[in-house]
Amino acid sequence: MIRIAVANQKGGVGKTTTAINLATALAASGWKVLLIDFDPQGNASTGLGVERATRDRSSYELLLGECTLAEAAIATRVPRLDIVTATQDLSGAEIELVEHERRTHRLDAAISNMPVGRWDICLIDCPPSLGLLTINALVAARMLLVPLQCEFFALEGLSQLLQTIERVRGRFNPGLSILGVALTMYDRRNRLSEQVAQDVRACLGDAVFETVIPRNVRLSEAPSHGVPALIYDHRCPGSEAYMALARELIGRLPKPAEAA
């Protein structure tokens, strides 16, 4: 199963929106997709229409070993897309795991214990921090997708994230690679957006996806309706951009049967 962490320690960069809509696009392309909501805010779960009262077995119970991945995963309204939900309890997991051995490998172990074949690909929606939850996701993942907002401070945050990735590679997961950087919240009317995009491409080259995600009100509205933007309004510029990004992403992925 292909494992991708969607991470950026800076909040408000479109990380969860990217995770939800790419998961939906992959499912629509015929992939069997699992989305793990690993953010205590639980926005990915809300964005896929899972009510908080129904989140009985979440990523918190999974991380603490109180349930298996198969027990935690539930179906969504999107065919071929399952989710492991998140609750506020997850915010206390870092403290509770202090005494556990291999606390950085808890999510990796939970995914590795899953029998092969149920899902082709797993996306992990990380919290906006570089704490133990994100480290668990980076250890469990084989590839990293970085949504990057087209604003000035984004470059500074990217530098911090790249340093963390190198530490994770050195200590825990030498096989972790960067699948790509997705430029989000791009405003063609704003010269700063274009300047940031040029700077990121100059720094990271081909690691940056050609597709950029524009600022789009429909992307912001969709979560309140409990559906991905690709279902809420598949013709809006944001949805069309995410479909293009998904096609580009698929081109960078190994075939499901080739994935570890």
Rank of each mutant, 00 (worst) to 15 (best):
Gly14Phe: 06
Ser112Phe: 09
Pro237Arg: 08
Ser29Ala: 10
Ile36Arg: 00
Arg247Trp: 11
Arg103Ser: 10
Glu99Lys: 11
Cys203Tyr: 15
His225Phe: 15
Ala246Pro: 04
Ile2His: 02
His225Leu: 11
Ala86Ser: 04
Ala53Pro: 07
Val212Trp: 12
Ile213Asn: 02
Cys236Ser: 11
Phe38Pro: 00
Thr134Arg: 01
Leu107Trp: 00
Pro115Gly: 11
Leu249Tyr: 04
Pro223Cys: 01
Val212Gly: 09
Phe152Val: 15
Leu249Ala: 03
Gln195Ser: 13
Leu253Arg: 02
Thr24Val: 05
Gly175Asn: 15
Glu94Trp: 06
Asn173Leu: 03
Asp108Gly: 09
Leu230Gln: 03
Cys203His: 15
Gly47Asp: 05
Asn216Phe: 03
Val217Phe: 06
Val78Thr: 02
Ser177Arg: 12
Trp31Leu: 04
Ala110Gln: 01
Leu158Tyr: 09
Arg3Asp: 12
Leu249Ser: 02
Ala241Lys: 07
Leu162Ser: 12
His234Tyr: 10
Val227Tyr: 10
Arg103Leu: 08
Thr24Asn: 02
Asp206Pro: 10
Glu258Val: 11
Gly49Asn: 03
Leu97Cys: 06
Ala25Thr: 06
Asp37Phe: 00
Gly49Pro: 03
Glu258Cys: 10
Val98Ala: 13
Leu162Trp: 13
Asp56His: 14
Ala110Val: 01
Arg77Glu: 13
Ser45Pro: 08
Arg235Lys: 07
Tyr186Glu: 10
Gly65Pro: 09
Val146Gly: 09
Val84Gly: 00
Leu81Tyr: 01
Leu22Phe: 04
Ile36Glu: 00
His100Gly: 07
Ala137Cys: 01
Arg80Ala: 14
Leu249Thr: 03
Ala5Phe: 02
Met143His: 14
Thr24Ser: 04
Val217Met: 09
Pro214Trp: 05
Ile36Lys: 00
Pro228Ser: 03
Leu161Lys: 04
Ala137Ser: 01
Ala109Gly: 13
Glu258Gly: 10
Glu240Cys: 13
Phe152Ile: 14
Ala86Asp: 01
